[in-house]
């Protein structure tokens, strides 16, 4: 403790930084998990799912936590990513990782750019409610559309999806897929972290606090939002592709309001605005759901319980689990040290 205190005082009295410790601890656990769980394939599968869904949670966090876009439609891009790679596998017989993951990324990006342009770039500044309803409607409409469309399997969705390939290697459920998902999540995480801590992240932080103020100093606020929304859509697209390869299945439910809302829950539960929060939230919700899934009495009322948890979080702990041990100042973050004069 004295060693810490005797370090040269960092600017401000920020105290110990908690987030990097949480991040490193999470990474260590994530790397160790498949080895610890190696004889329980069902748990490795669960863990892989958690990693993939974490990307969806981060995708939502970029919208809401970073840019103040209340998107109730992130599953739309997730689902479309999943469907696209399933169709490319079925109709073109192609499932190479270097082709399909970028394709899902691009599809998610373009689709969200389109929806974002429509919802955000109008002449009038859109309200949070307008954007929430717009994204929700998009997600709902997509789910309905797909449920009635024979070409994409209608209500049954698409199953027996062609396995993901890297060279001649085929990814099936298990440790290899787990590490693929972990690597992808890590790339997404690092990229999002760079974005968040850059001066662009500072602009977004300013927008969150007072959008009008930023417009009056000369920022095209809605354009920044549309950009982040598109990046978030790209991430959801990749996550959806991995999901459908991993499950061997993609269905209408994977792009509807149900999953979209679950992403909101992951993020708010863990702590929006930090990047590690959504991951912790996903782990917590998915692990608890899994543990309780065998108990029939709880299973049927579980969605209700989750709904109540979400309500409770919004009302009593809007900063999520992380809010308990990370200070506000650290949560909001800094955007680089101030260069010292003469130094």
């Amino acid at each position: 403790m004295t060693a810490i205190l005797s370090l040269p005082a960092r600017r401000g009295a920020k105290g110990l930084r908690v987030l990097p410790i949480v991040e490193i601890a999470t990474l260590v656990v994530a790397i160790a998990a498949p080895f610890v769980l190696s004889d329980r394939i069902d748990l490795v599968t669960l863990a892989t799912n958690v990693l993939i869904l974490s990307m969806l949670a981060i995708s939502f966090d970029l919208c809401w936590g970073l840019s103040g876009i209340m998107s109730f439609g992130q599953a739309l891009f997730f689902g479309v990513g999943g469907y696209v790679i399933a169709l490319v596998g079925r109709d073109l017989g192609f499932s190479h990782i270097w082709g399909t993951l970028p394709l899902a990324l691009l599809t998610g990006f373009l689709l969200s750019a389109l929806l974002g342009a429509f919802l955000l770039l109008g002449r009038k500044t859109p309200t949070v409610i307008f954007v929430a309803l717009g994204t929700l409607t998009g997600s709902y409409a997509a789910e309905r559309l797909v449920s009635g469309w024979q070409y994409v399997g209608a209500g049954n969705g698409l199953s027996s999806i062609k396995l993901l390939q890297a060279g001649s290697y085929e990814f099936v459920e298990g440790t290899a897929f787990y590490f693929l998902a972990l690597a992808t999540l890590l790339v997404v995480y690092v990229a999002a972290r760079i974005l968040m801590r850059s001066q662009l992240g500072l602009v977004l932080a300013g927008m969150r606090q007072n959008e009008e103020r930023l417009a009056f100093v000369g920022y095209r606020v809605q354009l920044f939002k549309a950009l982040v929304f598109s990046v978030a859509g790209a991430i959801a697209g990749v996550a959806g592709a991995l999901y459908s390869y991993h499950q061997g299945f993609i269905g209408p439910g994977n792009m509807g309001p149900g999953l979209s809302t679950t992403a909101v829950l992951y993020c708010l539960f863990g702590g929006s605005g930090t990047l590690i929060g959504p991951i912790l939230g996903t782990i917590a919700v998915e692990v608890i759901t899994y543990a309780l899934a065998d108990i029939d009495a709880i299973k049927s009322i579980w969605p209700v319980v989750l709904g109540l948890v979400l309500l409770g979080v919004v009302m009593f702990q809007p900063k999520g689990i992380l809010g308990f041990f990370v200070s506000d100042r650290e949560r909001i973050g800094s955007y680089g040290e101030r260069p010292q004069r003469g130094a």
């Binding site: 500072l202 932080a205 300013g206 103020r213 930023l214 909001i332 101030r338």
Partner: peptide, 14 residues
């Protein structure tokens, strides 16, 4: 309408 959760420095930089 300053940005209350950012430092004075970051307000001006923005």
């Amino acid at each position: 309408a300053v940005l209350p959760e950012l430092s004075a420095y970051d307000n001006v930089l923005l």
